[in-house]
Computed example of a mutant assay.
Amino acid sequence: MPMDDFRAQVDAEEPSFDLLRHCAKRYDVSLMAAMLKWIELAPKRTIVLAVRDDHVLWARSNRAAFISGAYLATRKMTIPVPSASIMHSRNCKTQTAINKIPAFVWFRKEPVDMPLTEISFVANQYGITLGILLLPDAQPRYWHQDKNETDDTGLESTIDLFERRGQTNIR
């Protein structure tokens, strides 16, 4: 899957399994391989995953999602699919589906009012459901303070303290 050609196929296109199936067919690869290539190019916070028996088999976050803390650590623990998700077995009514739910359902650190878009594809021949989780841009959890500025508690930042004591500037 040459990156330039792949990018030309997916740029300016809404994420969907139709788009990913087109790419998989074009490059003669599996749908999962196309998903994993696409996640490298996804501009927003995005997670792709595979689900079986209402548990996440594997998940991959793009850089924007990972840095913001939106990832599913499937190597460390078994992660159940939230019951409100369209990827939960009792909610899978069609082969492909799109749903909007609060991001809090999947990621407890996200704000309660932040939306998340789920896109699912049921691959019956393999007994799994493939999914895409699309999050809006992260809301800043901290802010950069100007030099010698203090926060609401009157304390200066650690970086400013180091600089004031003559240590190397690490900004």
Rank of each mutant, 00 (worst) to 15 (best):
A84N: 06
W58E: 10
R60S: 05
R52L: 02
E156N: 04
E118Y: 06
T94I: 03
P136K: 00
T129C: 14
F107M: 04
D4Y: 10
N62Q: 02
N99Q: 07
P2D: 15
V56G: 08
F162M: 12
K76M: 10
L49N: 04
D53H: 15
F107P: 14
R75C: 13
G127V: 04
D53Q: 12
I39L: 07
D137N: 15
G131A: 12
D137C: 12
L135T: 05
R7M: 10
T168E: 09
A70Y: 02
R52M: 08
F104L: 10
T74E: 01
P43R: 15
D28W: 07
W58K: 07
N62K: 02
A42V: 03
R26W: 09
H55G: 09
R164V: 00
Q167V: 00
A42L: 13
F6S: 01
S68F: 14
T74M: 01
I132K: 02
I170M: 14
L19N: 02
S61C: 08
S120H: 08
M32W: 13
V10D: 00
R164T: 05
P111F: 09
K109W: 10
A73W: 09
I47E: 01
R7K: 11
N91P: 01
A64G: 12
W143D: 14
F121H: 10
P136E: 02
Q125P: 07
A34P: 05
V51I: 11
L72W: 05
P43K: 07
R60Q: 12
F121Y: 08
R63A: 10
D137E: 15
V56T: 06
L134W: 03
A34L: 15
M77S: 14
K109N: 15
Y126L: 10
I101E: 01
K25P: 09
L130K: 05
Y126Q: 03
S61N: 11
L155Y: 15
V29I: 13
F66L: 05
P80N: 11
G154L: 08
R21C: 03
A12Y: 14
T96N: 12
D4N: 12
R21Y: 02
